[in-house]
Amino acid sequence: MSHPTKFGDRRGSIAAAVTVVLLLVGGALVGKAYSGTQSPPQPPAAQSAPSSAASASSSPGTTLSPSSSATTSTPASTSEFGPIMPPSSPISLAIPSIGVNTKGIVDLKLDKNGKLEAPQDFQKAGWYANGPTPGEFGPAVIGAHVDSKSGPAVFYRLGSLKKGAQVSVVRKDGSTARFVIDRVARYPKNAFPTATVYGDTNGRAELRLITCGGAFDQSTGHYVDNIVAFAHLIR
């Protein structure tokens, strides 16, 4: 048992006061950080690995003269394709694991620069209507906002989507296209892997879910990254 000294007492009460201040300020800061809306979940940024398709395509490799029109070097392969559905426009989208259940999917088109336009309505998802319909062979593309100016939008939680999660798209013909998530990645918009996202799907009917991510650039009014979820059709 140590003898309580005056000095010790004072030290104790100073410590107590410091504790109270620290608790108040720290708690307030944490509270403020979590108050209102939380930042949308982010998948890790994609490694700077370019798409295999892109790197393969950019290799000079076979340099036959451009004028030698239509000769062949590789025989056709008759590989087995995955399940494919006939075309039908999407009308609703459900992703139970992240609470997405959106109806009234709008058609999206390209702007004059060839860029895919986002839906006007923050609470609606859009489908790239010039591409394959969800369930058809190829990459069907559905995009939606992560947030509006005031709060979360349809794809707010897309970044927290996990591999294996189920996605279902109800289509105009009454059928449902069921997909399974393969991976979720985040790419800087200035290094967007076009070939990986919109290119050949190797014999499968696939789906791309796209929203925004990363930091918000106040000067442009846009997020700097895109979050892309890759999924394929299951039987």
């Binding site: 944490v30 939380q38 390209l110 895919l116 076009t194 892309v228």
Partner: peptide, 21 residues
């Protein structure tokens, strides 16, 4: 194919100083 990504957010839930705070 579409050129590049999409602009799909207005920033309403972005809080740039959140992490620091």
């Amino acid at each position: 194919a579409p050129a590049g990504g999409m602009d799909t957010g207005a920033g309403g839930t972005s809080t740039p100083n959140n992490e620091g705070m």
